[in-house]
Design a protein around this nucleic acid. Sequence first.
DNA 1: CGGAAGATTGAGCGTAGTCAAACCGAGTGG
DNA 2: CCACTCGGTTTGACTACGCTCAATCTTCCG
Lengths: 178, 178
Amino acid sequence: MRSGTFKSHLRLRDGREQVTGFQMAGELLGLDGLSAGEHASSAVALEDAEISAIPYTYLSELAGTSTRLRDVISRLMSSEIVREHGLMMLLGTMNAEERLASFLLNLSQRMEARGYSASEFHLRMSRAEIGSYLGMRLETVSRTFSAFAQQRLVEVHKKHVRILDFEGMTRQFELLLQ
Amino acid sequence: MRSGTFKSHLRLRDGREQVTGFQMAGELLGLDGLSAGEHASSAVALEDAEISAIPYTYLSELAGTSTRLRDVISRLMSSEIVREHGLMMLLGTMNAEERLASFLLNLSQRMEARGYSASEFHLRMSRAEIGSYLGMRLETVSRTFSAFAQQRLVEVHKKHVRILDFEGMTRQFELLLQ
DNA sequence: CGGAAGATTGAGCGTAGTCAAACCGAGTGG
DNA sequence: CCACTCGGTTTGACTACGCTCAATCTTCCG
């Protein structure tokens, strides 16, 4: 991805949807497609976005000639696996507040890495999409935002978020992996 | 892995544990270690097991000479990503019965692929480990097993499981990805 | 036989889900 | 310019699923 924001998601036969990730500029999309020759998930742009499509065959050929590129590719896939491990931890063991807190802190980090403010940013996704990603209902997302605002951890106005107390967020919720 | 069963898991600072997968003969362990040069998760054998350790540098060199091997590797990593997507779907949207049903059906498939019975097998992991994997408490795992037994979907005696009604399991719980 | 670890079952509770109503902001048309 | 619609969000009341705590049972092993 060159710019913009995407969401990746998958769907059960009965219509239930799970957002598997939000991608931002510089990140890769579609790493799940290499195994079966068919992508297991779909991706949708949440705003105007620019991407570069890289054909797998081309990438594979190039990889034959460069050790460095091979390392980069396996590293990217591996870090996708690590990212999903973290998400499984989140979905498997955390309560609503911990989920939203770690979501916000993660977003904040990624914004900062791209030269934006770490403390104040605009959410590209709806409450429902956040909820699907975090394994909770949109109403619970909304309520949890309100709870954070009341504790003076954040200020929220619709999709605009300002994080007031990073310390408090990380301390209050023991979110760090061992 | 050559034989046996492993579990992979990670831990939060406060001790909470999440089992991220159970591995069987023929499967790969440690794909998460390539990104940071350090593994994010640990693996523990649940019974006597045999493994072959493959140094990354060696594998990487080999990959330089063989297109076929490169394909195999990226396919393995990609299918690990797909597997985790499915697990996120499970953790994010399914209730207790659906989780256990899809766990059992998945195990069954993998047993069959290894030449064992698809309908009758021995669980290598404890209720607590199943629970951690499925994002629920061990008591809930136990209760759900009992509920399945009452509905005549399975027979369970401690770690011995016999699936009586595959149809019922899949039909009752809309578990198929679109 | 006794102890320990794992599994089952029960009772009561709490967190997040459900359903519903109200609100907000942006865009559209009379 | 105001009324209206519409999608997304917030808030409330009630409910239910799964968690917690606890007791009992089973199996295994010293």
